[in-house]
Simulated assay, not measured.
Amino acid sequence: MATNVTPPERLGQTCLADGRRLGWAEWGPPSGTPVLLCSGSATSRWLGLPVDAITRLGVRLITVDRPGLGASSAADGWTLHDWALDIGEFARMRAVAGMVAIGFSVGAPFALACGAARVVTGISLVSATDELAHPALAPALEPEAAMLVKQAAAGASGAELLLSNAADADTLREAVAGPSHGTDQRVYADPAFDRNYRRALTDGFAQGGAGYARETVLALSRRPFDPSSIPVPVDLWYADQDTNPLHSPDLGKSLARRMPTARRFLVPNAGSALLWTHTETVLHSLLSRIAPQ
């Protein structure tokens, strides 16, 4: 399997009004439809999508490092709301209008936060980390996920300290890729994908583990917004062979019921690397929902 994942075509940093920096990367035509990729755990701006797919669909793919990852300034105690405000300021400063978002894995709540704040006009969640702290999901959580949710609820600072000391680029890659479905294994074994994924994780931990720890605690905590109130269209994409305990125990069924604007797709014989095995399908569906009527 050749993913055709390449290094960024454009790299930069944007200085926000408060002096913090946001590191970003882009692929595809600058005049294309802007798609913000909120990537997975500790993954910096260096990992994108297959360049042939985004080129065919006229997509301007944008990745932005979350606080404390890659080239983005650290920010103590930042929240999902803060992230949405940062992306809104980033879009205004770079004159990016009509942006939509993809949230992959742990990136899902960050994409939803942008939707709740009306910073983006449409969202696609792929292999998404559900609101695992929602009481309705508690009986279905696997022991590992239940333990992490409990730690996050007991105290963010303590949970962040534990997480910060427990992971680095190599251990996180092995945790993600090691137990994956066979289709996923072919993605992770692809030289182009592997090279860029390793670079993104190494860059993600360049400032230490605090940024990874903070985003993980946010993803494992209750959302500061009601998913049912998100005003933009949302696609939910899950694979029937997704075994990651930090995604969704019911593969998005209950999440779809709580989101009136959502439609759910379950892909057979696929794993959690769905965003790279079905890139064009995911993008085409998202773009079709925000096209002018």
Score class of each variant (00 low, 15 high):
P191R: 07
V176Y: 03
T216D: 06
G208D: 10
V234A: 06
S248M: 00
F205D: 00
G178L: 12
E160Y: 01
P179N: 00
E142K: 13
N165V: 14
Y212Q: 05
K253V: 15
E144C: 04
G155V: 13
Y188W: 12
A213T: 05
A210Q: 12
A175K: 10
V234Y: 00
L246D: 02
F265Q: 14
Q241H: 03
Y238L: 02
E160T: 03
S157Q: 14
V217N: 01
N165L: 15
R199N: 08
V232A: 06
E174M: 12
P231R: 02
V267S: 04
L148N: 07
D250Q: 02
V267Q: 10
G252C: 06
T183D: 14
R173C: 07
N196V: 06
E174K: 09
A159G: 05
V217M: 06
S254G: 10
P260L: 14
G211S: 07
E160F: 01
A177D: 07
F265S: 13
G178R: 11
D240L: 12
D168F: 09
G271D: 02
L236D: 05
R195C: 06
S248G: 01
A200D: 10
A219F: 02
R258S: 14
G208P: 09
G155P: 09
F205C: 02
R222F: 01
L141D: 07
A239M: 05
Y212D: 04
A145E: 02
L255Y: 03
P260G: 11
A270T: 11
S180F: 03
A153K: 10
E174W: 09
F265R: 14
P245D: 04
D168P: 07
R173W: 08
G252H: 06
S157G: 06
P260V: 15
M147L: 11
Q241S: 03
P260I: 15
L172T: 14
D242A: 07
